[in-house]
């Protein structure tokens, strides 16, 4: 199964995960300092900054795009509850 390596920069931990894993599944277990709200892509609470490897993330859905826009998120922000890692090396600011 293809793997992705997700590095949590503040924690200094890299987690090797199966492709297709959502960021929230990893961030919750690793103890990252992220707050979660609805977990369904609507509230924007779990916005997370991707510092590298955005090309290895799933495309933003229409819903995620809208929520990110509403929250004035930057180009490198994603919703942890929506974004899936598809492979390669990804770093997040958490």
């Amino acid at each position: 199964m293809p793997k992705a390596n997700v590095t949590f920069e503040k924690l200094g931990i890299t987690v090797s995960v199966p492709a297709g894993t959502r960021l929230i599944e990893i961030s919750e277990k690793v103890g990252a300092s992220i707050t979660y709200g609805c977990r369904e892509g609507e509230c924007g609470t779990c916005i997370m900054k991707i510092t590298s490897g955005m090309e290895y993330m799933s495309e933003r859905s229409v819903l995620e795009n809208q929520v990110l826009q509403d929250n004035m998120a930057g180009r490198n922000d994603r919703l942890a509850c929506q974004a899936q890692v598809l492979g390669g090396d990804i770093s997040v600011k958490a």
Partner: peptide, 17 residues
Amino acid sequence: GSLANRVISMSELLANS
């Protein structure tokens, strides 16, 4: 910072949690 740059697998992570 002594634990920085650790690499663990998802299954290890799930087992620990």
